[in-house]
Amino acid sequence: MALGGNPVFNGKTFRSATRGGTQAAGAGTTMYAGQTMADQQQLEHMYKQPSAGPAQTGRMTFDDVIVKTLLCLGVVLVGAAIPAFVLRDLALPLMVVGALGGFVLGLVNAFRREPSPALILAYAFLEGLFVGGLTMFFEAMWPGIAVQAVVGTFIVFGVTLALFKSGKVRATPKAMKFFMIALISYALFSLVNLGMMVFGATDSMFGMRSEMIPGTNIPFGVVIGLFAIGLAAFSLIIDFTSISEGVRAGAPQKYSWTAAFGLTVTLIWLYVEILRLLAILRGSD
């Protein structure tokens, strides 16, 4: 086919180049069409896939919190086994080390802006030393009290979770105000009671908790213990609320460690309060 009167366009060189260019263009068109078909197939495959969940997008999930909480509690049990079964002769010093170390790391983890899995697990281990030593001390005096405390903790946890899921109990702003007032009051009482025990103002095993309510045979510690267990239970409600809001808001996955730390702290507190309440009840028999 004649390309025109210009000899340049009709020359052999141009015709060769044109054929080469036409072939290249045809090859390019074929490649583009093939790539387009491949892209369409990929898009269709992607559309058919289920939507990415929180785990795939690096967000906190309930499963993450459960797994990490179980891991923390497992480390607590490992720590508790050392004074309970491995180094029973060193149970008392290990309990003291665990109590002091756990208190310090608890504050560190509570005030860190970014959660540290290593520090959280270290806290769980130290608290395990404390809980294990304390449990064995009471178990030696009142056999079977450890099992009773564990069962009691599970019962309170289960009932609290059921009430939260049913929507019957919520951490409302008004309830939070009462909780903070009650918590501060209980903390002050505990400090005063501890001071009286340390400085010899009382020789009772549990300080003022061991004293009887006037006109009754009920130790004052029973009322205080039930009050403290109620505070710990409501603290679980606060934990559940925070976890639900974090998952709903799409919090980064790393904060599932913070949630696990909060639950571990509350569960240890709840267990200790139940253990002490049982000791007061059995000691008054």
Rank of each mutant, 00 (worst) to 15 (best):
M1F: 01
M1K: 01
G4N: 07
G11K: 07
T13C: 05
F14P: 09
T22P: 00
Q23E: 11
A24E: 14
G26D: 10
A27K: 13
G28C: 08
T29N: 13
T30W: 05
T30R: 11
A33Y: 08
A33T: 15
K48C: 07
P50W: 08
S51N: 10
A52Q: 14
T57L: 15
T61H: 03
K68C: 10
T69V: 10
L71A: 12
L73M: 13
L73Q: 09
V76F: 01
V78D: 09
G79D: 09
A84R: 09
F85P: 00
F85Y: 14
V86N: 01
L87I: 06
D89C: 02
L90I: 04
P93D: 13
M95R: 12
V97T: 11
F103D: 05
E114A: 13
S116P: 02
S116F: 08
A118I: 15
A122M: 14
A122N: 08
G128A: 09
L129G: 12
V131R: 06
V131Y: 06
G133S: 12
M136N: 12
F138M: 14
F138L: 14
I145S: 07
V151A: 11
G152K: 03
F154L: 15
F154T: 09
I155R: 00
V156Q: 00
K165N: 12
K165P: 00
S166H: 03
S166L: 03
K168Y: 02
A171T: 10
A171P: 10
K174W: 04
K174G: 05
M180D: 03
L183K: 06
A187F: 13
S190W: 02
L191K: 02
N193I: 01
L194E: 02
G200K: 02
M205H: 01
M205Y: 01
F206V: 03
G207S: 01
G207C: 02
G215M: 07
T216G: 04
N217D: 08
P219I: 02
P219K: 03
G221A: 11
G221R: 04
I224C: 12
G225F: 05
L226I: 14
F227C: 10
G230N: 12
L231N: 11
A233I: 10
A233H: 05
F234P: 13
S242E: 13
A249R: 12
A249L: 07
A249M: 07
G250L: 11
A251H: 05
A251N: 05
K254V: 12
S256F: 11
L263A: 10
T264K: 00
T266Y: 06
L267T: 15
I268S: 07
Y271N: 04
V272H: 00
E273G: 03
E273C: 07
L277H: 05
S284W: 00
D285I: 08
